[in-house]
Design a protein around this nucleic acid. Structure first.
Lengths: 144, 144
DNA sequence: GGAAAAATCATCCTTTCGGCTGATGCGAAA
DNA sequence: TTTCGCATCAGCCGAAAGGATGATTTTTCC
């Protein structure tokens, strides 16, 4: 697991533990009667669930559908050019008009990583900028 | 005629007149025998012809073929969006992967003018960057 | 288990892009 | 003659893109 992801999980785990401990202390210290134990646990459960959903999505980094479900990239050209699965994902995002930052946010990776992928793509497609890369990718049948 | 174009023609005209006058002076002053009059006139003719070709292209600013001779842009959409002839030309250049500077050099206009056209195109196509504009233009059938 | 490929991330720097604002001239139509 | 659309041009500024260089970790395959 990438260090930044691990750090994020550790950070959130610690934060959750601190929050839970704090709530427990509040419960013991003041013994608030109209806020029952069930409600407290419900709040904690909600917060944990939300964080879990976010962490789960980040860990899985599911592939975003490009919007043309019937299109299949030319596997032969992909193999010939040695375009990896991740590079193709970034290429599809570019084809949708996304900026590098938007691609990073969508795929839950850093801006630096996106720039590495786009730079590698430019080399493989013999392009110097994204409009050229997209034109060539379409000619080769890599994107719709 | 734009002031910059007029200035260019005046500049070249003056330069040509000065060159011709200078050659005439050289001819009278030294009477170089091994360089006949015919050769001098030939050199002058070549220079003038080259400049004339360049000036002629610049004045006419002929439309550059995009490379898909069978494609016809959707005239209905062009009219509906009020995309002018020049804006369409710039759009086609963008679709070929050219930078703004390259478009300016190709169409013999300034970088500022290209930026004005691309900005207007973005507004009409409801895009914020050229990859979005190109995607939308293709969807509307404005470019191949 | 080890090697290679893939994926990830960072930093620095230059160039390009794009928004904003402002401007002038030409040609056609009213 | 005036108005309007189009084409042209400029400058400033911040953001984004892209090249170069370097690095570590994970995944895959032998």
């Amino acid at each position: 697991m990438r260090s930044s992801v691990r750090n994020t999980i550790l950070l959130y785990g610690s934060a959750m533990a601190a929050l839970f401990t704090g709530l427990k202390l509040v419960e013991y210290r003041f013994l608030v009667k109209d806020l029952s134990l069930e409600i407290l646990l419900g709040v904690v459960a909600l917060v944990f669930a939300a964080v879990g959903v976010w962490a789960g999505r980040r860990l899985s980094r599911q592939r975003i559908i490009t919007g043309d479900p019937d299109f299949r990239p030319n596997q032969q050209e992909l193999d010939r050019l040695h375009i990896s699965r991740r590079e193709l994902e970034v290429l599809e995002m570019m084809a949708r008009g996304l900026s590098n930052k938007e691609i990073a946010d969508t795929l839950y990776i850093s801006l630096s990583t996106v720039k590495t992928h786009t730079s590698n793509l430019f080399q493989k497609l013999e392009a110097g900028r994204r409009t050229q890369a997209l034109r060539r990718a379409r000619e080769l049948g890599l994107i719709p």
